[in-house]
Computed example of a mutant assay.
Amino acid sequence: MTICGIEIKGSEAIFALVTPHLEHVAVATKKLALDDDEDAASVKAFAANLAAFVKAQGITRMVIKKRSKKGEFAGGPTTFKIEGILQLLDDCDVQLLSPQTLNAQFKKHAFELPATLNKYQHEAFKVACAALLKG
C-alpha cells in the first residue's frame, strides 16, 4: 500500500508517494494547481484531476501537513479549499498531521530524503514517512 504525503502551498497540492518501507515512488505528477479558486469550473477541474491522479496511482491513504488556521503562519483560504477537496475524495482515507508531530518523527527516526525527490517535495515526503512511522 502506497501512502501519499501532501503539502499544500499557495494554490498547489504537492505530492510524494511512499511505500511502507519508506521508499519514494517516483510518478510523473508531482503537484496539482488550483488555477482560480473563485471559478467553479476551475475548482471542478482541479477535483477531477485530483480524483484521476488518486485512482491512477491506486492511492487509498493520504496524509496532509496541517496548516495553522490563525496567526502569522496561517494558511490562506485557497489552501483550505484544496484540503476540503482532498477530504471529499471517495475510497481514500485522509488525515491531517501537525508540523510538531512531523518534526518529532523526523528527529526521532532521521529518515533520509531520497535523491529522486525534487526539493519542493521534501515536506510531502516527510509527512508520508511520519504518518507511516506513527502508525
Results as ranks from 00 to 15, higher is better:
V25G: 06
D37L: 03
E7G: 01
T60R: 13
A16V: 02
A13E: 09
E83T: 04
L32C: 05
A56C: 00
K31P: 05
L88M: 14
Q87F: 12
G58R: 08
G58H: 07
I85L: 15
T79I: 07
V18M: 01
V43K: 11
D93S: 13
T79R: 05
T2R: 14
A110H: 12
F73N: 14
A74S: 13
G84R: 13
F73G: 08
F106T: 11
D35W: 05
R61D: 09
F111L: 08
A33T: 15
V43E: 12
H24Q: 10
A74K: 15
C129W: 03
L96H: 05
R67V: 08
E72K: 14
F80C: 05
A110Y: 01
E23L: 07
L89T: 03
M62R: 04
E72P: 10
N118W: 10
T78F: 03
G10N: 11
C129K: 09
K65P: 01
L133F: 02
I8P: 08
K55W: 06
D36H: 08
L50N: 05
N103Y: 06
E38P: 04
V43R: 15
L102C: 12
I59R: 03
V27I: 03
S11F: 09
T29W: 06
L113K: 13
A51N: 02
V25D: 03
L88K: 15
E12V: 02
K30D: 09
E38G: 10
V127R: 02
D36F: 02
A130I: 06
A74E: 13
L50C: 02
G71S: 02
H122D: 15
I82A: 09
T79G: 15
A48K: 07
V43S: 04
N49Q: 14
A48R: 07
V27N: 04
H122L: 07
A33P: 02
L96Q: 07
D93E: 15
K30E: 14
L97T: 05
T19Y: 07
K81G: 06
A74W: 07
I64F: 05
K66Y: 03
H21P: 03
D39F: 08
M1V: 05
R61L: 04
D35K: 15
D36L: 08
K44S: 13
Y120A: 04
D93N: 12
K108I: 03
A131K: 14
E72T: 13
V63N: 06
A45W: 07
P114I: 10
A56I: 00
P99D: 11
G76S: 05
F46N: 04
A16L: 01
F73M: 12
K108R: 14
L132P: 04
K9T: 11
T116D: 11
V63Y: 07
P77M: 07
C92Y: 06
N103T: 12
A40P: 13
C4S: 06
F125C: 06
L97W: 00
L132Q: 07
G76H: 08
A33G: 14
P20Q: 03
